[in-house]
Design a protein around this nucleic acid. Structure first.
Length: 282
DNA sequence: AGCTACTCCTGGTAGC
DNA sequence: TGCTACCAGGAGTAGC
């Protein structure tokens, strides 16, 4: 499922094809993808706009729009589970599962393809306000060990749901949380405020190292869903240490990797490397 | 604050 | 072969 590295890959690969282009028309195949707007309102908002910049924030792909050289809101695309974005020559009929398509002034079309319909392609007037609830970007310079530790020590939640919470830290999903916790030797059910600073330092290092490595490999293609805009799978799935490795030996210590549910999410861990927290006394 | 449950969706798969 | 039942999962929301 697309997380920060996959979304970053899509953003980078799609940028040269759409930056500077003008949107000349819209197609909407599934209304809910617009996130509450109507087809006419969506068309009015984006048609005739120039795509000024293409950027990523958390798991959103932002297309900043301009009309007559002035800022005119943005398109915010979230791939969720099965969304894909790609540019191709405009055809007569959109392919199956294309939920939104934007005609561009060079005869091509930006297509949002999404089998499970969880994804969103939303016009927002004020992208900053739209993104304001999000936590820090894990690869930006402001995200230091100290920042992470300060945030962890005042929370009592389990690490797994906390790290999945986009308001706490932006961009991680189920795969990279499991991988980062394993690399940092932290149990997914450990309470955030029980970590000591060296624990937070290991977690900080693990998150950044894993995300950077995954971006280098153009993300992970699991379940045959995620593809780059060029149709290529990523490579990072070959680096998974615990995710989807239920029953296999831990690459670090050889103990069997377990899968269970934490906070309604399938969770993978090595219980020798990642010691369970002591249950509260009494 | 933070927990659980529920919702949205469909392709894939297990069981018969 | 073909049917039904069930599952994964990001994020938003409701209720406690």
């Amino acid at each position: 499922m697309p997380e920060l590295p996959e979304v970053e890959t899509v953003t980078r690969l799609i940028r040269p094809s759409v930056a500077g282009r003008t949107i000349t028309g819209t197609y909407v195949g599934w209304l809910r993808t617009l996130g509450g707007s109507t087809k006419p309102a969506f068309r009015r908002a984006v048609s005739g706009c120039c795509i000024a910049t293409v950027r990523r924030r958390a798991k959103h792909i932002l297309f900043d729009l301009e009309r007559d050289g002035k800022a005119a809101g943005a398109l915010a695309v979230h791939l969720r589970m099965t969304g894909r974005l790609y540019v191709e020559r405009r055809g007569d009929t959109p392919a199956a599962h294309v939920r939104v398509a934007l005609d561009l002034d060079d005869g091509k079309s930006l297509q949002f393809h999404d089998v499970r319909k969880f994804g969103r392609c939303v016009f927002v007037k004020d992208p900053d306000a739209f993104l304001a609830h999000l936590g820090p970007e894990p690869l930006e310079s402001g995200f230091t060990t100290q920042v992470l530790w300060n945030a962890l020590r005042v929370r009592r939640r389990q690490l797994k749901p906390l790290l999945l919470d986009q308001d706490f830290l932006a961009g991680l999903g189920n795969i990279y949380v499991d991988e980062a916790l394993h690399a940092a030797r932290l149990h997914p059910e450990r309470r955030a405020n029980t970590l000591r600073k060296p624990d937070a330092a290991r977690l900080h290092t693990a998150i950044q190292r894993i995300l950077r490595a995954a971006i280098e490999r153009q993300g992970a293609s699991f379940d045959t869903f995620y593809r780059t805009p060029e149709g290529q799978p990523g490579d990072y799935q070959h680096e998974f240490q615990v995710y989807s490795k239920t029953g296999q030996p831990c690459p670090r210590c050889g103990a069997t990797i377990r899968r269970w549910v934490v906070g309604q999410r399938g969770t993978h861990a090595c219980l020798r490397c990642q010691r369970p927290p002591r249950p509260p006394a009494g």
